[in-house]
Amino acid sequence: MSQVDLSSGCGPTIACREAFGQALLELGREVPNLLVLDADLGSSTRASVFASEFPERFIQVGIAEQNMVGMAAGLALAGWIPVTSTLACFASKRALDQVRASVAQPNLNVKITGGYSGILAGKTGITHQSIEDLAIFRAMPQMTVLAPSDGIETRAAIRAAVEYRGPVYIRLTRDPMPTVMPPDYVFHIGKAVPMRSGSDVALLSTGWMLLPTLEAATILSGEGVQATVLHLPSLKPFDAEAVVEVARHTGAVVTVEDHSILGGLGAAVAEILSERMPTWMRRVGICDCYAESAPNEDLLTKYGLTPANIAAQARELLASRTASRA
């Protein structure tokens, strides 16, 4: 895929959950066998947008995520394309064995969406944050795992997931953020998205962390450090070739994710590079701890998910590499 043109700057701010609801609505008009199942969180996730136009294809299962996923498996067996809607924390933990045994193992055409992912779960705290979902679903055979960034990519990812035949987990974000993807963006499962070229360091992002990663690249550029930014919204299948290529090109890689540094993007990149292109690396993410409840900005600052910290990690990485060669 050709590099995304960022010359026009950021587009309008779109709330990712609104993009999710709109995507369901659009797909509902095109795909007559699309169903949405909700475990009483539709007004939060915005699955409710679909319900307003397609009440007969909106299935309210109540606060019962395990039954929701099992029902989705049965509906898939009956020829429907079910999309389940709940928070990422519940999709990946409360209903985990149902996803494994009733969806992934029989390889059924169910789309599992996880809203409010990472630590951006409002002020709800650690029970509602989800910092392990990528690790969990990435480890599951036959699963496809997607983590789109802005509203445009969210909409495109939902479309790609529905068009794909098989189980998919889509990690979603709630909050409004500026759009960086072009309006005609098409999501390609399994492909990385080159966002910016630079030869000094590669910044690799997934999910909404693309935005602070791009800002970090701007900060570094102001200091004379030219960063490549490679976005990886498809955690599985994973674009290993693109990762190896940017590692070869820069010799220094920083991964960035609103997720534990264990098992997610950082782990996927380390797995690939340690086998194919051993490379100096840093992982920015949640450092194997549960966070806390607080305003988003405060959380992001304390747990290091900021452009300033990404840039600092890149600088420290380059300094370490230089020192090791001295």
Partner: peptide
Amino acid sequence: DMSSGSLGQGLSVCVGLALGAKMA
């Protein structure tokens, strides 16, 4: 018609199947 083995999951699948059959 459906894989099984992890106890407690089959009835949910059947609820989905039966609902899907009716809807279609």
